[in-house]
Design a protein around this nucleic acid. Structure first.
Lengths: 190, 190
DNA sequence: GTCTATAGATTGATAGAC
DNA sequence: GTCTATCAATCTATAGAC
């Protein structure tokens, strides 16, 4: 396997395992085993655990950016775009019920660890927040109101994801998502 | 120090450290140091890390139960009781901005670790949920609606706590809490 | 009930052969 | 670029003196 290829495989596997079992609970050995390389080779690509985390966060940011562009391209209706965001709770429901929201749970863990990468991780939240705010602006909401609505949709997704991971009730998630999509379509108060 | 006294000190310190840095990131040495005893003595009281976790969860459940009774005794107005719950986001704001919600973050971490204690931890959520549901029933809401409102208030608290820990914006928390309290007082849709 | 000493496994990380 | 061998530190956990 070429060097760059191995590096990217490491980042992808680390991304997956960090999400599934958490950053702190994941060891170099876990990632090396998943990639199928020795620990020694592993350190050739990443010198510290924090370096892998940085690479994983970069990858997630890129993934988020391209997902937002996709949603923007999929429809010209801003309300429908917001609903694309809300519906990832359904799209990724199985994984969210097992491991929570990838962004929220990482930020929470890094906050507890007082890890410096928290600032980079929460930027993913900011990407979603700013994008949602732009959609609500396009729907005619003014400056403070558009921001409030954006943060409320974000908080909704985090709250539902947390309860989904705790209770593992499939119908609960679907019910709340459907209702939120209706509220957004009708431009009702959130 | 007598035996029972030491045991209780261990549980209290473990509770605090688990909240601050997470369960997985906390070692026996961390707790023993905080209590001021040797690791050897520590094992006399708790044989495994899981045993401490069980004791911590029991303590939190008891604490939750007595807090709910206090709120119930503090006023006869069910709407005001619900607002007592919502306002813990303000009461514990400083700590929530640093470490998130104690219940939500523990459940999320245990879910990721596939830890059997998740079932016991999520029971704390259930205590809050059932109590909130009873308050909404007392406010005249029927069976499915009262449950929905209870879960929505729970999800609200989890969503705001998660964003608070990520963004650490003090005014955001206060604004959302004030608004939610108003909605509950006015019996508006949540 | 508390301590010291210590076991055995695993951690993050390095050195050097190929 | 990949491996094996190895490091010191830390982990959970135990044994036994006091």
């Amino acid at each position: 396997m070429r060097g760059e290829e191995t590096r990217q495989t490491i980042v992808q596997k680390a991304d997956e395992i960090f999400y599934r079992q958490g950053f702190e609970a994941t060891s170099f050995a876990d990632i090396a085993d998943a990639v199928g390389i020795s620990r020694g080779n592993f350190y050739h690509h990443f010198r510290t655990k924090d370096a892998i985390l940085d690479a994983v966060i970069d990858m997630r940011r890129e993934h988020t950016r391209s997902m937002l562009v996709e949603w923007e391209d999929s429809t010209t209706d801003p309300a429908e775009r917001v609903n694309c965001f809300v519906r990832i709770l359904i799209t990724n429901q199985a994984r969210i019920m097992l491991h929570g929201c990838p962004v929220g749970t990482l930020c929470t863990e890094l906050a507890k660890l007082q890890h410096p990468a928290l600032h980079r991780a929460k930027h993913i939240f900011a990407l979603f927040g700013d994008w949602l705010e732009r959609q609500f602006r396009a729907l005619g909401h003014d400056e403070p109101e558009a921001r409030d609505r954006a943060l409320r949709v974000l908080a909704f997704s985090q709250g539902v994801a947390t309860l989904a991971a705790a209770f593992r009730d499939e119908t609960y998630v679907r019910r709340e998502v459907d209702r939120m999509c209706d509220l957004i379509r009708q431009q009702a108060p959130l």
